[in-house]
Design a protein around this nucleic acid. Structure first.
Length: 352
DNA sequence: GAGACGTGGTA
DNA sequence: TTACCAAGTCT
């Protein structure tokens, strides 16, 4: 246990923040509860530089909670496409509707009520309370975890209770009553810019003198690594079907599972009789399909090899399935990033 | 408690 | 090339 008085930690962090903290992030100007909420959801497992453009586009289209609540799902998903973790967007939309219906369109200002919203956990709730409402609440994002784990030399394995529990305790202990907004921003900024994962810049750290990990020269080893797991290999076949007007047939994916709620190219079993299937489901007479260059995409838990087949047809189109629609290349719904790359690639360079 | 859930950057 | 990871939450 680090026996440095917690107020000294907070003071050192705040003094550092006044000189080096980030004060120009889009969701800080203006710092409304709605904007902070959207930003915190986007920032889950996602770096600031990735989020900024998405956040700005999202705010133009959905400037307030009512606009978001009233939007159709496809529109919300379209603005999230490419950001990943699409359950966040589905939860965000559902939460907006609940905020309008159950909270008179005002974001709750306490941790307990915030956590009851879909997509808001303990860490995000704390961030919203501290950053949007300026009220006392501990936060514990990946940055704060790393800073505190080193400061107090917490050597337990990330993801276990033996790691999470003491970290939350310490987060509460260090969070000051005054300047909570700045303090929470400060500990995240320190983690992002100084107390970085690979080689922390201890020479620039205001807490270096009080850091137990540095004293034990184990700052590079903390937080400890999780044991890696083998990545599964998967294969899938998708159909790239264009109609006479140059429109593309897309398929809405089910809400659960990978790319849930997004639109993608129709997926078929590797051994499917594609000609029969196209006739049945889309009313298209198609040939066996031209095999295109396979495309590999690495997910966290598996590697997916996509085998695109370009189908040709001349017949009148009649889709029998509500989950399939034609879209132009310029006016598409939200589609996954690898599929977007596939559609953006010139066809000549795709053919095998 | 462990696994699912995306993407782009970095070493 | 491969592995790991970033402002986590849900099941």
């Amino acid at each position: 246990m680090n026996d440095t008085p917690p107020e000294q930690i907070a003071d050192a962090l705040l003094a550092w923040f006044d000189r080096h903290g980030r004060r120009d992030l889009p969701w800080q100007h203006p710092r409304t509860a709605y904007r902070v909420w959207i930003a915190e959801i986007m920032l889950q497992q996602t770096q600031v530089t990735t989020v900024v453009d998405y956040f700005n586009r999202f705010m133009v289209r959905f400037p307030d909670v009512e606009t978001l609540a009233e939007a159709v799902s496809d529109d919300v998903m379209r603005h999230w496409a490419g950001l990943g973790y699409y359950a966040r967007a589905r939860n965000l939309h559902a939460a907006a509707q609940r905020i309008v219906e159950a909270h008179a369109g005002e974001l709750p200002g306490d941790v307990e009520t915030l956590i009851s919203l879909p997509g808001v956990g303990r860490s995000t709730a704390g961030a919203i309370v501290a950053q949007a409402f300026g009220r006392w609440a501990p936060i514990l994002d990946g940055n704060a975890k790393r800073v505190i784990a080193r400061l107090a030399a917490v050597t337990a394995t990330p993801g276990t209770a033996a790691y999470e529990k003491p970290l939350w305790q310490l987060a509460e202990r260090y969070t000051p009553q005054e300047r909570v907004t700045d303090y929470t921003q400060a500990i995240m900024d320190l983690g992002a810019t100084v107390c970085t994962r690979g080689r922390p810049h201890c020479e620039r750290c205001p807490l270096a003198d009080r850091c137990l990990a540095k004293q034990a020269a184990i700052q590079n080893q903390l937080p400890t690594r999780r044991q890696r797991k083998r990545r599964e290999q998967r294969e899938t076949t998708v159909l790239l079907i264009e109609d006479a007007q140059g429109r593309i047939l897309l398929e809405k994916r089910p809400p659960a599972g990978i790319w849930g709620g997004l639109w993608s190219l129709p997926e078929v079993a590797a051994d499917a009789d594609v000609e029969a299937l196209c006739t049945q489901r889309y009313g298209i007479r198609a040939d066996a399909g031209l095999l295109l260059t396979p495309l590999s995409h690495t997910f966290t838990h598996f590697e997916l090899t996509i085998h695109p087949r370009r189908m040709q047809h001349r017949d009148t189109v009649r889709i029998m399935d509500a989950n399939h629609r034609w879209f132009t290349r310029d006016d598409r719904p939200g589609i996954p990033a690898p599929i977007a790359r596939l559609l953006n690639t010139p066809q000549q360079s795709l053919a095998l």
